[in-house]
Every structure is written in structure tokens, then in C-alpha cells.
């Protein structure tokens, strides 16, 4: 398998990091989890991630601002938005601006893994699911 996918996960709710990180690690991603948007943005300033997954609405800073930071610094990075309650309009608007995709809570980790896989493919580094093992087989 090629170089692991570098993923940054940002959501001010701990449940997201807690449940998503293991799921992404299983498909071979290297995941850094943040609950504080400013810290996440600082980290993005230091390191280029392949994929950034961020909540669209956080108290300190909203996802679109995070997206702008990412886009300015690392235009190659794919950004995926997590939306809470059906703020679909906001999400679509974000997609118009270059966000790769979005996913609405509640969602299963598998649903996001699929989007991550799409993003990986778009990056030219497709994830090979077949070598992952039984955890990935849908029940």
C-alpha cells in the first residue's frame, strides 16, 4: 500500500473524534483530531494534510473559514464538511466554493469512509479497500 492518507479531523464535539478516528485508522489513514478550530488552523499552517474533515458550525470559527485557510495554504487538500442539522443550503453553497463534499449528522462512520475514499481517488491516491480485512465488509 502506498503512503497513508493524512487526515485532519476537526469538530468541537468529542464524539466525532472518538468514533471517527478509529474508523479512519482502520482504512489506513493517519488521523490528527482537533476540537479547537484555532489549534487546527495553526496545525494546518505547519503541515499539509491530504484531507481535512471539519464541522461546518463551530462556536469559535465556522467551517467555511477553516476551509478558506486550507484552500489558501494547501490548494490540493480536499476538504469535507460535516453539517449538524439539515443546513443543506449552507453545505451546497460551500460546495460551490470548492469544498469537496459534505456529510450530515447523524451518519455512520462507513458513510464518511466512502467519501474519504472518493477524495483519495480524486487526489490520485486511491485507497485499496480489498486489503483491509473483514471490518470493512458491510454487515
Amino acid at each position: 500500500m502506498s503512503k497513508p492518507l493524512e487526515v485532519l479531523l476537526l469538530d468541537d464535539e468529542p464524539i466525532v473524534g472518538r468514533r471517527l478516528k478509529p474508523a479512519l485508522v482502520k482504512i489506513g489513514c493517519r488521523v490528527e483530531v482537533f476540537e479547537n478550530p484555532r489549534e487546527a488552523v495553526a496545525r494546518i499552517g505547519q503541515k499539509e494534510f491530504d484531507i481535512v474533515v471539519t464541522d461546518i458550525r463551530m462556536e469559535e470559527m465556522d467551517g467555511l473559514q477553516v476551509f478558506k485557510h486550507v484552500q489558501e495554504k494547501w490548494p490540493r487538500t480536499k476538504v469535507i464538511m460535516i453539517t449538524g442539522y439539515a443546513k443543506i443550503d449552507l453545505a451546497r453553497e460551500a460546495m460551490g466554493k470548492g469544498v469537496f463534499d459534505f456529510i450530515a449528522k447523524p451518519f455512520r462512520p462507513d458513510d464518511l469512509r466512502q467519501i474519504i475514499a472518493n477524495a483519495a481517488e480524486a487526489l490520485g491516491a486511491p485507497i485499496d479497500f480489498s486489503s483491509m480485512g473483514d471490518e470493512l465488509v458491510e454487515a
Binding site: E13, I15, R19, L20, G84, Y85, K105, P106, F107, P109
Partner: peptide, 16 residues
């Protein structure tokens, strides 16, 4: 379904 399916959701979902 959400509980059994190990979904990721926020407090808002449950309050709603």
C-alpha cells in the same frame, strides 16, 4: 436505529 448503528450524532439530534 441510531443507537444500534453506532452513528455519529450530536446532542442536538437527541434533543430534537
Amino acid at each position: 436505529e441510531k443507537a444500534l448503528g453506532e452513528y455519529i450524532f450530536d446532542r442536538h439530534y437527541v434533543v430534537t
